[in-house]
Simulated scan of single mutants.
Amino acid sequence: MTVDNLRTQLVQVAPIVIVALGMALVIGTEGVDLSVGSTMALAAALLPLYLGYGLVPALVMALLAGALVGAVNGTLVSLVGLQPIVATLALFVGGRGLALVMADSQLKQIVNPDLLSLGTGSFLGIPLVVLIAGVLAVAVAFLVTRTTFGRQVVAIGGNRSAAALAGLPVRRVLIGVYVLCGVLAALAGVLATARLTASDPSSLGTLMELSAITAVVVGGTPLNGGSIRVLGTVAGALLMQLLRATLIKHDLPDSTAQIAQAAIIIAAVYVARERRSR
């Protein structure tokens, strides 16, 4: 693989890594967030509406939208008591529909040079999107291993009832986790839009939830919570992107890559189950 090819693959996988980091936190609490793809689309739809006021207001509105989606998901899970897959399914459907309404169901070209530089710019030869993903990976790893919040997330995922009896703020932590996941998904939507130079809510983020879950599971984070493997999540995303690129390079259809991805998920879940049973 040439340097240019490697650079392209890293740029393409960066948004997946960012979304997968948020998904890892959610799965660490024994949950799941199916709305991350729709959150990306919602952030992309908001950008053209506020870029006229400058890059910073547009970014703030996009990230606030992600935080709002996460807050709704977290509230439905922690306060209403819905299963995570049910709670987030509502915004999986409704979020993209709202994004399409905001964008009038049309693709809109992005001409703001400051935003486009996020998708095409580089620092010391490293693409900015890759640097952002790397910094966020380090930040999430620090959050999980070195902060009280991270320890609470792991404890709640391990045994929610015991965590509540121990006096941990279960509801507040769950809402915080889903808000973080929403913000990271919105940021991934912004970066993907900057790279594509267009806002396309109809397709941006499609199947992203599956890619993120795959990266988390392949990376070694168990679906029943209680553990978060940040480095493994990043490695899982890179592995799946490399697999897809390799198959496409050999003139195999994208459907073959999806089948291979499904097989890897099954294998990863099986290995994790066997490891826990020993």
Rank of each mutant, 00 (worst) to 15 (best):
V111G: 15
N112E: 15
P113E: 14
D114H: 14
L115H: 02
L116R: 11
L116W: 03
S117K: 11
L118E: 03
G121V: 08
L124A: 12
G125D: 06
I126T: 13
P127I: 10
L128S: 09
L128R: 13
V130H: 14
L131T: 03
L131I: 10
A133R: 00
G134W: 02
A137I: 11
V138I: 10
V140C: 05
V140D: 05
F142T: 13
F142A: 07
F142V: 14
L143K: 07
V144Q: 06
V144D: 04
V144K: 01
V144T: 09
T145H: 14
T148C: 01
G150Y: 09
G150I: 05
R151L: 11
V154A: 09
A155Y: 05
A155W: 12
I156W: 04
G158F: 06
G158S: 05
R160V: 14
R160T: 14
A162L: 09
A162P: 08
A163F: 05
A163P: 01
A164N: 06
A164Q: 07
L165G: 09
A166G: 15
G167V: 12
G167L: 13
L168W: 11
L168K: 15
P169K: 06
V170M: 14
R171S: 14
R171H: 15
R172N: 13
R172K: 15
V173H: 07
I175R: 04
I175W: 04
G176P: 04
G176N: 09
V177R: 02
V177F: 07
Y178R: 01
C181M: 08
C181V: 01
V183E: 07
A185D: 04
L187F: 05
L187I: 12
A188G: 02
G189D: 00
G189C: 04
A192G: 07
A192F: 13
A192S: 14
A194L: 01
A194W: 02
T197F: 08
A198C: 15
S199E: 02
D200G: 05
D200N: 13
S203C: 04
L204K: 03
L204T: 08
L204P: 03
G205H: 02
G205W: 02
G205A: 13
T206N: 11
T206P: 12
L207D: 15
E209K: 09
E209D: 13
L210T: 14
L210M: 09
S211W: 11
I213G: 00
I213F: 12
T214L: 04
A215E: 06
V217W: 02
V217C: 10
V217P: 04
V218Y: 06
G219I: 08
G219R: 00
G220N: 03
T221R: 00
L223I: 06
N224P: 11
N224I: 12
V230P: 06
L231E: 09
G232K: 13
T233L: 12
V234E: 03
V234K: 00
V234S: 02
G236E: 07
L239W: 08
L239I: 10
L239D: 08
L239F: 11
L239P: 10
Q241Y: 00
Q241S: 11
